[in-house]
């Protein structure tokens, strides 16, 4: 029978035993989600800042779309990426379906809107404050982008962590485009679904605890670094 104690000991055994399969799954999870977050940040930070800085026709629509896509259901993102990468789809030639790269793409689609939309908000606040001073320095808008991103860095760190949290926690998208292939595309969340389906609830919950622990560790690391920098730089 399932009890929390049971799941907890299972999690503990998995961690202590350093099970090879588990290590592979955890490594792949982190690899996929960190890569997705990195690429989404490289695209989303400048994109969000650009939307904050420039006034153009249809800007309101862009902001509404970005905000709406923050709530994109992972399964839908997965389905869209599947249809793109499927052999019958426009990018089928690349042969990316059922690979970690496909999972990275699906997660980027999920978190890019979050990073871009929240970056837009934070950099717009900074821009309102800095606009006159930066204009006085004769800073061009393109040059202002890195300035605003850097000066919003503490808020943006939280934004990126939110993106990482969503990427590492979602299952619907990676299940469809990755296929949950043992040893190739099986990550923490799809492994949890598989174990749940097998009725192995303590193991599923144990894996869930490990996932939570990892995300918490990464958040704690970022938090401590952020606090240290904040203390030093204000």
């Amino acid at each position: 029978m399932l009890s929390e104690d049971n799941a907890f000991t299972t999690a503990l055994q998995l961690i202590i035993g350093l099970d090879e399969t588990l290590v592979g799954i955890v490594a792949l999870s982190m690899q996929v989600s960190l890569t997705a977050v990195l690429i989404a940040a490289m695209l989303g930070l400048p994109l969000g800042a650009a939307v904050a800085l420039w006034r153009f026709p249809g800007r309101g629509l862009v902001i509404i779309i970005l905000n709406a896509f923050m709530g994109l259901p992972p399964v839908v993102a997965g389905l869209v990426v599947y249809l793109m990468l499927s052999r019958a789809g426009p990018l089928g030639e690349l042969g990316l379906l059922f690979t970690p790269s496909a999972m990275v793409i699906a997660q980027i689609l999920l978190i890019l809107p979050i990073i871009a939309a929240l970056t837009r908000q934070h950099t717009e606040e900074r821009w309102d404050e800095y606009r006159e001073q930066l204009t006085s320095f004769r800073v061009s808008r393109v040059r202002a982008i890195p300035t605003l991103l850097w000066d919003a860095r503490f808020s943006l760190m939280t934004v990126i962590l939110a993106g990482f949290g969503r990427a590492s926690a979602e299952v619907g998208a990676v299940m469809i485009v990755g296929g949950n292939i043992d040893g190739v595309t099986r990550v923490m969340t799809t492994a949890i679904v598989l174990e749940t389906n097998k009725g192995n609830l303590p193991l599923a919950l144990g894996l869930g605890m490990i996932l939570l622990l990892l995300v918490a560790l990464i958040n704690a690391g970022a938090f401590l670094i952020g606090e240290e920098a904040r203390r030093r730089l204000g």
């Binding site: 690899q31 960190l34 890569t35």
Partner: peptide, 16 residues
């Protein structure tokens, strides 16, 4: 973080 991400991206391809 950036270095780690890139290394991982390459590792993914290599494994594939």
């Amino acid at each position: 973080l950036a270095g780690l991400g890139l290394a991982m991206a390459f590792a993914t391809n290599a494994a594939a």
